[in-house]
Write a protein that binds this DNA or RNA. Structure first.
Length: 151
DNA sequence: TAAGTGCGTCGTT
DNA sequence: AACGACGCACTTA
């Protein structure tokens, strides 16, 4: 289920996942635009699920997140398909080497899984770590991206 | 080497 | 003040 605000895509859930986040009343805004966004989103998601680069994305509304979270998500979006990064790596990438734990929290707060590839973030040493949408996704998705798990 | 424990760390609620 | 989708050092076996 995808959710849109006046700014852009603001939420995305895995199928059969928990209930939706309240927000978005995009009906007030331009419906045609939302439909356009959703078409783009759907295409991007399909690409992701088949292991391809997402291609063009709709505008993302991340205004709901804190500055720290937005920094983290920005890094995640920079991880190419098939690549992975550790929580500590992300922490270093945003210039806060000690904030690895906080990075984990930020990933958990990610409103748009898949398009913001939190599943490419592993714990140190290639271990899986956790995942809000269920660990099986974290195993499945990178699998489709031909990620090589070394130990 | 593998598995378990404890503590430091830091943003969020 | 308490709680993590972590990391590291340090036991044990």
């Amino acid at each position: 289920m995808a959710s849109y605000s006046a700014t852009g895509l603001c939420g995305l859930d895995f199928p059969s996942n928990r209930s939706n986040r309240g927000k978005n009343r995009a009906e007030d805004a331009n419906l045609p635009q939302v439909r356009r966004w959703h078409a783009t989103t759907a295409k991007a998601v399909r690409s992701m699920l088949s292991g391809q680069a997402p291609g063009p994305l709709p505008p993302l509304d991340l205004g709901s997140g804190t500055v720290f979270q937005q920094r983290v998500w920005g890094v995640l979006r920079g991880i190419p398909p098939g690549a992975t990064m550790s929580y500590a790596g992300v922490a270093r990438a945003i210039g806060k080497p000690g904030a690895t734990r906080a990075v984990g929290s930020a990933c958990g707060a990610n409103p748009i899984p898949l398009l913001i590839p939190c599943h490419r973030v592993l714990a140190a040493h290639g271990k899986l770590g956790g995942f809000s949408g269920g660990l099986h996704w974290k195993q499945t998705l990178p699998g489709r991206e031909d990620v090589i798990f070394t130990l």
